[in-house]
């Protein structure tokens, strides 16, 4: 599903170049639930941004579902993000003047799907995350966990190939975090490929594979025994 080879990325900081990713080789198969771990500055967010076509690598190749991601113009990049990827953010990034339903329907709006169908589909995903009765509420009327559920529903709405989650439990308490991870595991059980960036060991243990990043290189990449989140709630 994801194939990256010898990925390099550096940022300019003043006159110096900061080499963030120093040759990453990494692949993810369909249906995997992978966590990327590392301390801040290890390059994990940069890696996720490149995987999310929000940023572009300086060197190396990136294939997403067999499609080479290289030198895309912004229009095609937007199209790929919409078709291939679902994003879940630490700070939820819901649009606060839109209802939960409208938030979930937003990726479908950019696919040009008619209003009626859009709302039907968005509603079914809200049901899936257990928030059907909150459909008309604005994000500021929802709790953190509920917001993240809406965000997950939104990420799922466009049938993406891969879900990318950046510290998705970073703003939640432990109990809510585990509830969210339970949802993520269930979605993974249905066969969705999911990448989670985190620096929390317990969250990482709930995935099937942990990739450790340090100073821009992968220092460890191992399959782990998955801890079911539901057992810890």
């Amino acid at each position: 599903m994801i194939e990256i080879k010898d990925l390099h990325k550096s940022y300019k900081v003043g006159k110096n170049a900061l080499h963030v990713l120093k040759g990453i080789n990494f692949s993810v198969k369909e249906g995997e639930l992978v966590s990327i771990m590392g301390s801040s500055g290890s390059g994990k967010s940069t890696l996720l941004n490149i995987l999310g076509i929000l940023d572009e690598a300086d060197e190396g190749t990136y294939h997403l579902d067999g499609v080479p991601i290289k030198n895309l113009n912004e229009r095609i990049a937007a199209n790929y993000r919409n078709k291939f990827l679902g994003f879940i953010f630490q700070s939820f990034n819901l649009i606060n003047y839109k209802s939960a339903l409208d938030n979930v329907a937003l990726p479908l709006y950019y696919q040009g799907i008619s209003r009626g169908e859009r709302n039907d589909r968005a509603m079914s995903y809200l049901e899936k995350v257990g928030l059907a009765e909150w459909a008309t509420h604005k994000p500021n009327e929802l709790s953190g966990g509920q917001k993240q559920r809406v965000a997950i529903a939104r990420a799922l709405a466009s049938h993406p190939k891969v879900l990318l989650a950046d510290e998705l439990t970073g703003a939640l308490d432990t109990k809510t975090s585990y509830e969210i991870m339970d949802l993520v595991q269930k979605i993974n059980d249905e066969g969705k490929t999911i990448l989670v960036v985190t620096h929390e060991e317990d969250i990482a243990q709930m995935t099937k594979r942990i990739v450790h990043l340090k100073d821009g290189v992968i220092i460890n990449d191992e399959k782990v025994e998955q801890v079911r989140a539901i057992e810890n709630v």
């Binding site: 912004e74 229009r75 937007a78 990034n93 819901l94 649009i95 950019y110 939104r154 466009s158």
Partner: peptide
Amino acid sequence: TNEIGVRRALGATPWS
């Protein structure tokens, strides 16, 4: 700005 970033992550084209 943030909202525009979110929209673009969700697939909004520059023209939209």
